[in-house]
Design a protein around this nucleic acid. Structure first.
Lengths: 234, 234
DNA sequence: ACAAAAGTGTTAGGCCTACACCCATGA
DNA sequence: TCATGGGTGTAGGCCTAACACTTTTGT
């Protein structure tokens, strides 16, 4: 008891909550949306899966905290993370009052090195998410809505797809996120009209002619488009 | 010194930030966007203007806190508030580490009773905002962006306009928020096509025929539209 | 030979934009 | 009588959605 009291050396006139960040990481394997989860090694919810995240330090911003925790737990350093909502339910953590500032990020699956055996990070298919710790299912639902909204305004594929990709992969991505089906021909022409795709010359004299054409994003045009406001009608 | 120490009875093993909510309240007077500000009565930033808000209690959610603070400081009880961003810069409050969860709300100007002389709340024209306390100018910028985005997805006028209004007022509202000019005829037909306006019969035998037509929102259709996703192209 | 995926173009309908004229009111 | 603001309709262009056939490859 004494020990416990001695450790509690940061005192305030009024009770203060703890603040954490959690990060919803989306990936795409060419067919399905994936989510990166961490298996919890400690109580509460030991053994359950959760989003990477942790306590914010007193001298770092939430953005810094999210980036730091993500790197510590998954090795990811490049992900562009964006805050999307702060969850404040009073009993969302059984230990004490904890509010969490939630982020999401879109990453290429290949950027997560599975080699790091200290990491308990694992990709899950969006349709096969296990039961999650804390209120993370709640967080997930909001993150998915956020993603659906953004994809209509930003050519998000950029972050989720490999450097070069086929038109079918791009279409699969949109279909997986929005949970709809598009006419292939209309999708092709719509994307071409946006003028952000560069065909990659993967046809040499001895490649079969029916290998799908490869594309990469035109980063210059992509950024221009993002600047002046982009709207994709589906 | 002893006094101060005695008052600090909530102790933790690690330092905890304080958490506040702040609320950006938008109004519309028929011509311009207005913001509701509070004059600060205490340090820091005493005498400066700021958004209504305050410290979150340990047993309330951020939503509850925002609602409570708003009512305490402005008397508003009906406003639908939505969280839009959490600001976490390390030095945003000179007293201690404070993060703030920011909300915005759209209200009818007439809902704020100026009668309450305890209240130091005052409407400011969006183009004549004084210097603000803390990082509230930063919060404002983000709130305005949020508003601009939302007005393209939700017939927001509902919340900002009086019960009945003219088409010109509605157009002024959109023009003020998005900072553009529309062709009057195109705006009329676009709004009519949405089918969320009910003409109000304000023409009696002895009214002059050239009084502008009045409308009110069709709440049923408005909600249907909001449900199934709405997109307004400007 | 057959299934599966890639490549390509046309048409009809709806929405957006630009634009002009008349009427009523109040100064 | 003049300026201001309200009321209405049309034509052209662009985007979207629906839709079919051929080629190639792998089984």
């Amino acid at each position: 008891m004494n020990l416990t009291r001695n450790k509690k050396k940061y005192c305030y006139q009024y009770p203060h909550p703890s603040v954490t960040t959690d990060c919803v990481i989306f990936g795409f394997d060419g067919m399905s949306i994936k989510l990166l989860l961490i298996e919890r090694g400690i109580e509460p919810y030991k053994g359950k899966w959760a989003f990477p995240g942790g306590f914010m330090r007193i001298d770092e911003t939430a953005d810094e905290c999210a980036r730091r925790e993500l790197e510590e737990e998954t090795g990811l350093t490049e992900a562009k993370m964006e805050q999307f909502y702060t969850f404040t339910d009073v009993n969302r953590d059984p230990r004490e009052r904890v509010i969490t500032i939630a982020y999401f990020a879109l990453v290429k699956i290949s950027d997560v090195r599975g080699g790091d055996d200290a990491s308990k990070a694992q990709w899950f298919d969006y349709n096969k998410i296990p039961s999650l710790a804390f209120d993370h299912d709640h967080i997930l639902r909001r993150a998915v809505n956020e993603l659906k909204e953004r994809i209509c305004f930003e050519p998000i594929g950029f972050e989720l797809l490999p450097e070069v990709f086929t038109m079918s992969q791009l279409q699969n991505l949109y279909e997986a996120i929005l949970d709809v089906k598009f006419d292939r021909r209309n999708f092709y022409s719509k994307m071409h009209k946006l003028d952000i795709l560069i065909p990659v010359d993967n046809r040499t004299a001895d490649t079969p002619t029916r290998v799908p054409r490869l594309y990469q994003f035109n980063r210059v045009k992509y950024n221009e488009l993002k600047q002046k406001g982009f709207r994709l009608e589906f």
